[in-house]
Design a protein around this nucleic acid. Sequence first.
DNA 1: GTCTATATATAGATAGAC
DNA 2: GTCTATCTATATATAGAC
Lengths: 199, 199
Amino acid sequence: MAVTAKIDTAERILDAALTLFNERGAANVTTADIAAGAAMREGNLHYHFRRKEQLVEALFARFQEDELLVAERSIPDPADPRSYTDYQRGWFELMWRYRCFYRDATILFAQAPALRPRFAATQAQARLAVQRVLNLAVENGLMRATPAQIEKLVMNVWIVSSYWMDFWAANTGAETLSRSDLAWGFAQIASLYEPYMSA
Amino acid sequence: MAVTAKIDTAERILDAALTLFNERGAANVTTADIAAGAAMREGNLHYHFRRKEQLVEALFARFQEDELLVAERSIPDPADPRSYTDYQRGWFELMWRYRCFYRDATILFAQAPALRPRFAATQAQARLAVQRVLNLAVENGLMRATPAQIEKLVMNVWIVSSYWMDFWAANTGAETLSRSDLAWGFAQIASLYEPYMSA
DNA sequence: GTCTATATATAGATAGAC
DNA sequence: GTCTATCTATATATAGAC
């Protein structure tokens, strides 16, 4: 089971990296930190990921896969408002889980330049899926907005969703972010939709 | 004129630092880069700013001063929509000029931790000033919104204004940002105000 | 004030024993 | 696969000549 063990170890490293990136910010995490987080020596970590860049790229591949799953999740009942709430909740969970990629995209690009075009492509695809969902809401009379308004709205929702955590940390002076702060972000994003809601 | 010369040199260093932070991102600028940008040797730079942290703090003091001037600029004619457009334009110019502080706040905090509480305080003060301006627009019938809506709106405008540049770079895959891209950001922010405009 | 030369610290990566 | 020990590269900072 040597192969399995290796895969598991790589996954363990990625888990540790994600946790640290999320908690401390991608700028403040060294390979030594990640090794410690995965309870191993630096030399061993470099056996599994020869370069830090490769580690970041592998973690990103995970994120990318999960994001598209969330973005393209189907709306079970297009006439039921709860379907959309559930959809949004799925996004929120994902963005929290991989918040380092939203918050620290710039830093991670500096560490792994190959990510930039891949990120742009994935985000564009995901944004299109979101746009389709909002258009569905319009078609079903749950929202009232022109296609142009929907497009701007999606962009604004995207920006606020991506960066409110960084904003929150910077502007409150808080060192870290707790899960309970999510309510603030949720309300903030809800206020973007509000002018276009029918009900 | 020894004293004057010293001040001028310090200013020259700060100018170079601001330009580089804006163009390359705060994460990718070393003291060597700044020294080169100011056309001097590293040793000389350290004579003027013993630690990089002090340099960042001095640059921040400049930003802070300019930001509060823009935020608390008076509205000459509260009944004239153009007064508000001018006010917003002032913000846009400032945010472009000091975009590194909005975009890379997290990175700069890592380099100069003393900045975090100062930044939070300044931003809160500035945001209050913006809120007063928007309330003025409501009072003069140019906008229609409840105080609660204004508060959410200010936060969203703040977040989008601060981060749209980073978002743009990350999502288009562009390495840098040109001044012509400002139009996109302006339209994006305008769309936030739109639902609350009377005219 | 500005320079050259040097020192220190740290992150990332490698070599080889086990 | 994991370890210890070591190497390299880079950023920041200092010392001292001019």
